[in-house]
Design a protein around this nucleic acid. Sequence first.
DNA 1: CTTTTCACAGTCGCGCGGATGGGA
DNA 2: TCCCATCCGCGCGACTGTGAAAAG
Length: 602
Amino acid sequence: MLGGEGESNSFASKEAAEDRRKSPAVDGEDPAAGSSYTEHRMGADRSYYLPSTVSKQSQETPSPCSFIPYTPSGTVYTPSSATRYSSSLHLGSVLPSTGFPPSSAGRSHFSPAYQLGQSPGCIYPPYTSPGSALSNLNLPTTGPGMRAQVYLCNRPLWLKFHRHQTEMIITKQGRRMFPFLSFNIAGLNLTAHYNVFVEVVLADPNHWRFQGGKWVTCGKADNSSQGNKVYIHPESPNTGAHWMRQEISFSKLKLTNNKGTNLNNSQMVVLQSLHKYQPRLHIVEVTEDGVEDISSDAKTQSFTFPENQFIAVTAYQNTDITQLKIDHNPFAKGFRDNYDSMYAAPENDRLTPSPTSSPRAHQIVPGARYAMQPLFQDQFVNNLPQNRYYNSERAVPQTNSLLSPQAEDATSQRWFVTSMQQGGNNTSTSNKLDLTPYEGEYSSSLLPYGIKSLSMQTSHALSYYPDSPFTTMSAGWGSRAAYQRKVSPSLPWSPRPSATTGFSEDLNKVKAQIEEEVNGNASLISSWTETQPSALSLDKADSYSAACKRRRLSLNGPSTEDSSSDIKCEDLVSVAINSSSYIKDAPSSKSMAAYYSFYTNP
DNA sequence: CTTTTCACAGTCGCGCGGATGGGA
DNA sequence: TCCCATCCGCGCGACTGTGAAAAG
């Protein structure tokens, strides 16, 4: 399936050595021909274990941690026609739901990933000392085969959609995903080359329909799906340093139901309406020309985030989803009925885009960040009241939002891997994440500090328009792009700036803030347990009519969940990557792990 | 009846070209 | 006066969800 139609041949190399096979990014041939790269190989031979819980190596040499081997019975459905990357790592379906009780205290609130990260070297292996936890696990931390860690940048937003069962519109011309996929990657070899691509696979074997205000299964899925299922990041191939420098955004990925016209359109992923899909991120180490070396099995890594699951539709079914899209997607701004009232607030209070704030103004006014950032900020945060849909949720204090949105978002990012509630049944809620631990997303920030100082270097973290992340918009958002253009034109292989040069002060601030947060972790966890909403158990049918009535009601102004992704997504990475001294600081590294929960596989 | 397709209106970014201002 | 850089307005295209019509 992968590249089976030859539509993803963006990096084809005609000089592939005999002992090499092309990675999906370079594969323009029939996958059947590349038999060595089969699903079986990916699923069995390669390391598809829970990232933080097990590895192939650890299975052979048991680690101190209680790792759980991956079992291919995850929720990612693998029909006979599945791609060769099927059966790869799928976290949520693997971890037992009882493994990480949300109400447990202390560090247990963090995922096993966090446990790995407790060693200073766990998150950023290239800079670790030899005695890291990873090395104890016989997991390579440097060089070929080193583990990568992937972080879903706009996870809070994904979770919001996931609560209502995310829907993605598919059209003949192709429709962009919203939220789109955006990742941070760590743990790659700085100099090695990688192809990064997303594959969208069936998440379950069912056909779905929206009935009575909820999604219910309706027969079996059509397994005879055709067309491209892979979207290769346009910057592939590139170095590990490049991929780790900032978010990897897949905002250009388009979903279509047109199997015929997109064979040569690598931007299109062909899906079937009313089927549930699971995006996957694949990182394949390749040679400089994009050709994968088959001599090593440890060069392909796959990552699955359960909250990225969605049902493909040709028209929105759930009005809650529609409203979320309108509220968060900048392109749908015209459908916000309360648009005027939302932006009538003073500039300082405004956390959503201002129609009157032109890009040029953004560039001129240094302090205009919070006024202009939402175009990308919407990808990460919520501009609207949290209890707009989830009445049971605690109202979030807004005192911190305007002062230190980053801090709040950093709090929201303190998530951990948990089991999906995906038993054998396939109900409308069976694939829902166990969101309980995620409610930290909606909890108020307990970080008393503001980290405004970071805004200058971070605010461009993810442009909604990746075509111009370093031009007008991004320059205005954070000036980092401008800074990069004027000061740091180095790194010819990348337009991205060197992240931390000249920001040591900010580094220290972040470090202090994180340490402070770690010290206050208990209270934070307490806030989670106290604010668990009942949204997950909402009877969708009962709330359906009410949801319809709630539509287009955005009255309360900016929410405190609002924040930028900057610190969590980019700068923590770049900070850590570029500051070995910082990493060597154990407490800070711990907190980094807290900020940087991730999925990874060996 | 359900699902898909299409035209539509709205917002936004970008590019182009004219207007403006400063310096040689 | 000429040249250059910058600012500004306009039009275009991309993108969104809506709602009616068409298709199955």
